[in-house]
Amino acid sequence: MKKKSKSSSDLEKSSKARVLALGSVMAFIIAISPYIFYLYESFPQEQTWDTLLFSFKTNYYSTLYVAAWNFMNKFVPLLLLIVWFFTCKHWWYHVILIPISMYIFQIVSSLNDDIEYIDEFEIYYIIPVMMVVIPIVYLIRLKLFDKVVHGIDLDKIDKELKEYEAKERDI
C-alpha cells in the first residue's frame, strides 16, 4: 500500500513539475516577445541577402528589412494567440482559433511573392473556420447557460425521458 501511495505522490509531483515547466516556458515566450518582434532590425536594407549558408532575395518588398518587419507584425501576435489558446481555461477558448487562422493566412500571403494584394482577401478563407468554430462555441454556451442560469440539466432530462420511454414500453 505504501508503494502505491508513494508512486501516486511521485506522479503528482512530476505532473506539478511538468505544469510548472510548461508555465515557465509560456511565461518566457511572452516575456521575450518584444525581442522576437524586433528581430527584423537585424535584416539588411537590401533586396538580396547572401550568407555562407544561403542566399535570400525578395521580389515583392523593397528591402528584406521591410519583408522581415511585415512578417514579424504577423508572427508575434500569432505566437501570443497560440500561447493564449493553449493556456486559456475558459469555455470560449475555441473562438481564439479564428484570429489564429487569420494570422496564418496573412503570414502565408506575405511570404508568397506572387500575390498582388496582401491582407485583403483572408476573410474569405477564414469563413469556413468560423462556420465550424462559432456553432461549437454557441452550443457550449447554450449548455452552460441552461445549466448555470436556468438550472436545467440536460443529462438529467435525457435520463428521465429514457425512464419514461422504458415505462411506456413495459405497459
Rank of each mutant, 00 (worst) to 15 (best):
residue 94 H to M: 13
residue 56 F to N: 07
residue 16 K to C: 06
residue 23 G to Q: 06
residue 135 P to W: 05
residue 28 F to D: 03
residue 129 V to M: 06
residue 145 F to Q: 05
residue 144 L to V: 02
residue 105 F to L: 15
residue 104 I to D: 07
residue 67 A to G: 03
residue 162 K to R: 12
residue 59 N to H: 12
residue 88 C to F: 06
residue 160 E to Q: 07
residue 161 L to C: 04
residue 98 I to Y: 04
residue 109 S to N: 13
residue 75 F to H: 02
residue 26 M to D: 02
residue 143 K to I: 11
residue 62 S to Q: 13
residue 3 K to A: 09
residue 166 A to H: 01
residue 137 V to G: 04
residue 9 S to T: 08
residue 74 K to P: 00
residue 43 F to E: 01
residue 122 E to Y: 15
residue 156 K to M: 09
residue 68 A to W: 07
residue 85 F to E: 04
residue 23 G to W: 06
residue 5 S to Q: 15
residue 141 R to W: 15
residue 126 I to M: 08
residue 24 S to F: 15
residue 84 W to Y: 15
residue 2 K to L: 10
residue 20 L to G: 08
residue 60 Y to S: 06
residue 108 V to H: 02
residue 30 I to G: 04
residue 69 W to P: 00
residue 49 W to D: 04
residue 80 L to A: 04
residue 80 L to C: 06
residue 5 S to M: 14
residue 112 N to E: 11
residue 39 L to D: 02
residue 42 S to Q: 09
residue 69 W to D: 06
residue 116 E to I: 13
residue 99 P to Y: 02
residue 56 F to Y: 14
residue 61 Y to R: 03
residue 56 F to W: 12
residue 21 A to Y: 10
residue 165 E to K: 00
residue 150 H to V: 00
residue 71 F to E: 02
residue 64 L to C: 07
residue 128 P to F: 01
residue 100 I to W: 06
residue 160 E to T: 01
residue 6 K to N: 10
residue 159 K to I: 00
residue 96 I to L: 14
residue 51 T to G: 11
residue 113 D to G: 13
residue 143 K to R: 12
residue 98 I to R: 08
residue 20 L to K: 14
residue 150 H to M: 13
residue 65 Y to M: 05
residue 130 M to G: 11
residue 82 I to Y: 04
residue 110 S to A: 13
residue 16 K to Q: 13
residue 88 C to A: 15
residue 148 V to A: 03
residue 143 K to V: 12
residue 120 E to H: 12
residue 9 S to K: 13
residue 120 E to P: 00
residue 43 F to S: 07
residue 7 S to I: 13
residue 16 K to H: 11
residue 15 S to M: 10
residue 82 I to C: 09
residue 107 I to P: 03
residue 69 W to V: 00
residue 141 R to T: 11
residue 72 M to K: 05
residue 126 I to F: 06
residue 98 I to Q: 05
residue 141 R to Y: 15
residue 61 Y to E: 06
residue 94 H to R: 14
residue 96 I to P: 01
residue 165 E to S: 01
residue 161 L to E: 03
residue 51 T to Q: 08
residue 138 Y to H: 03
residue 96 I to S: 06
residue 98 I to D: 05
residue 165 E to T: 00
residue 135 P to I: 07
residue 111 L to Y: 04
residue 123 I to F: 14
residue 23 G to D: 10
residue 94 H to V: 00
residue 116 E to Y: 09
residue 133 V to H: 01
residue 93 Y to Q: 11
residue 71 F to T: 08
residue 47 Q to H: 11
residue 144 L to F: 07
residue 124 Y to K: 04
residue 13 K to N: 15
residue 111 L to G: 07
residue 38 Y to I: 07
residue 49 W to S: 05
residue 74 K to M: 08
residue 152 I to E: 03
residue 105 F to E: 07
residue 165 E to H: 01
residue 4 K to M: 11
residue 103 Y to E: 11
residue 11 L to I: 10
residue 12 E to F: 14
residue 50 D to C: 05
residue 17 A to F: 12
residue 9 S to Q: 14
residue 56 F to C: 04
residue 151 G to Q: 05
residue 69 W to S: 09
residue 96 I to Q: 01
residue 79 L to K: 04
residue 43 F to K: 02
residue 9 S to L: 14
